[in-house]
Simulated assay, not measured.
Amino acid sequence: MTGYGRVLKQQDGYDLALEIRAVNHRYLECTVKLPRSYGYLEDKIKEMVQKRIARGKVEVALTLHRQETETPAVQVNHAAVCAYLKALLQENQLLAQELDDGAAENAFLPQDLGLSDLLRLPDLFQTVSVEEDAETVWQVVKPALEETLEHFLQMRQTEGTHLKQDIASHLDAIEEMTNQVERLVPESVQLYYDKLYQKIKDLLQDRVVEESRLVTEAAIVAEKLCVDEELVRLHSHIAQFRDFLESTEPVGRKMDFLVQEMNREVNTTGSKSQSLAITKLVVDMKSEIEKIREQIQNVE
């Protein structure tokens, strides 16, 4: 079932944005989009989602930024300073060996670096960040995720109410057409008997038609054309489907299976029918069942 929920929060020094969206899917498939530094939250988020959602292709997107409440600590990279000075010393020693006559003392590199010199050198200063505690971060994300799930499920609940009404209307139509088929079945058997009697009479012409033999043959064919069992099962499936509509548990897969059974009973009824009126009703019933099949793909 489709759904959407979104929450924006500022909590405990963090700016947080959390979205949950879902589209129809036969099973539950959950993906989580996170900043790379918070990848350790993925399993916990999926676990919470799986407890509240049973079906659908669900995507959770989290954006999380820590507010800078303290002045960051700055340290001098001592190792880098030593490396620069060592490099200068080595270079001066090489120059002294090449210019041993002392005529080019000004070519030597200065070994005393001032503040302006240090600031121009890369990587000599580094900002020390405070490590974030994983449990502290989760305690910020968890309540926001719960709130987002509530918004998401409320939207699903609203959509589910409309789906329930639509499916119920299709079930009413199927039940009414099933009742019409039940009323037409005796008439179709009698119609078949009359046709059979007239056909035999035409073939035998002036000879006497043996009524008892004709009744026996008609009874055999009527047994083959009987759809009472199919109609009884169809009524049962409709009643069970209505129970599913009132259930608070996930029933999408059960509905999917029940629709297949309803379609099977209707197909059997149509294959047995010798009545044009019943055949027309069967076509309409299959159309209503297909509409239900499309809708239950949205049901969890």
Rank of each mutant, 00 (worst) to 15 (best):
D133V: 14
E98R: 13
S129R: 07
G102C: 13
E146P: 01
L153W: 00
E159S: 03
A103L: 03
L118N: 07
Q157I: 00
L184F: 15
G102K: 10
L118V: 03
G102A: 15
A134T: 07
L124Y: 02
L149V: 01
L163F: 03
Q139A: 10
D166E: 14
F125Q: 01
L145Q: 05
Q154G: 06
V189F: 10
E105H: 11
E105Q: 14
H162P: 00
L115M: 05
L118S: 06
A96T: 12
V128C: 07
H170P: 03
N179D: 10
A134Y: 13
P186F: 15
T127G: 08
M177L: 12
L99Q: 07
A173V: 08
L124I: 02
E176A: 13
S116W: 00
L99C: 14
L153S: 06
Q190H: 09
S129V: 09
K164N: 01
V137L: 11
L121Q: 04
G160R: 03
A96L: 09
T161R: 06
V189C: 11
G102N: 13
L124Q: 05
V181E: 14
E105T: 15
A168L: 04
E182R: 15
P143L: 12
V141N: 06
T161N: 11
S188M: 13
D100H: 09
A168G: 09
V141Y: 02
R120Y: 06
N179K: 15
E147F: 04
S188P: 11
V189Y: 08
N106H: 07
M177K: 02
E146G: 08
D112P: 06
F125W: 00
Q157W: 01
P143C: 12
L124R: 01
L113M: 12
T127S: 06
L118G: 03
T158C: 05
F152Q: 05
E147Q: 04
V137A: 11
F125L: 00
V137Q: 04
I174R: 08
H162V: 02
D123P: 02
A96S: 12
E131N: 09
T158M: 11
A144H: 01
L149D: 05
D123Y: 07
L119D: 07
L115F: 01
V189H: 06
W138E: 09
A104C: 10
A173T: 11
D133L: 14
E150Y: 00
E175S: 11
G114L: 14
A134N: 07
E146V: 06
E135D: 07
A173I: 05
Q126W: 02
E135G: 02
R183P: 06
F152M: 04
N106W: 02
P143V: 15
L184S: 12
L121E: 05
V140Q: 01
L121H: 05
T127R: 03
